[in-house]
Design a protein around this nucleic acid. Structure first.
Length: 158
DNA sequence: GCCAACGTTGGC
DNA sequence: GCCAACGTTGGC
């Protein structure tokens, strides 16, 4: 008896000054903490599965770009940084008995041979419909269609 | 650094 | 539950 699990695809944003693909490459596995947006949390809590494929995107740099690949590496669990007053992302309203912020671990997979930049994505009709192209799409964790994921991997030289 | 687009907060 | 004020994101 097989259980068919459909592979899901995601894009996660990070400011490389704060946490870059190189950081993930050296850490290997990293709790994706500090997410304080409910929609993004819900994706991690409710929808992500271990093994889901992830595009790693650098924001706040010129040009913004997908720079690598990662994968979901854990089941969801409470974000410990929400409970620590010394943490930047401390949230006194997150009760350990009923945690507000939930995360998953991310595992490094690869650097793209060539970054795939936001302008490339905007100019390529094959990326039509991708959430990243929507104006004001600030969501730091986004679902991605397989076809768009595959296109990034191809343009990225992998 | 600017600022448009969003998301959240809190008074009412 | 509305909505103005405020804070943040993130491309440019």
């Amino acid at each position: 008896m097989f259980t068919l699990v459909v592979m899901q695809y995601w894009l996660i944003k990070s400011e490389p000054d704060a946490y870059s693909i190189d950081d993930l490459a050296s850490d290997k596995v990293e709790p994706w903490d500090g997410i304080r947006n409910y929609q993004a949390r819900n994706f991690m809590r409710d929808t992500m599965r271990v093994g889901d494929k992830v595009l790693f995107y650098h924001s706040q740099v010129k040009p913004p770009a997908v720079v690598g690949l990662a994968e979901v590496a854990s089941e969801p669990y409470p974000d410990p940084t929400a409970f620590d007053p010394n943490e930047k992302y401390y949230d006194p309203k997150s009760d350990p008995a009923n945690p507000r912020w939930i995360l998953v671990d991310m595992r490094y997979v690869a650097h793209l041979a060539e970054p795939v930049t936001l302008p490339q994505i905007k100019d390529d009709p094959k990326f039509d419909g991708m959430m990243l192209r929507q104006r004001g799409a600030r969501l730091s964790i986004q679902p991605v269609d397989k076809k768009h994921y595959d296109r990034v991997v191809k343009l990225g030289g992998l």
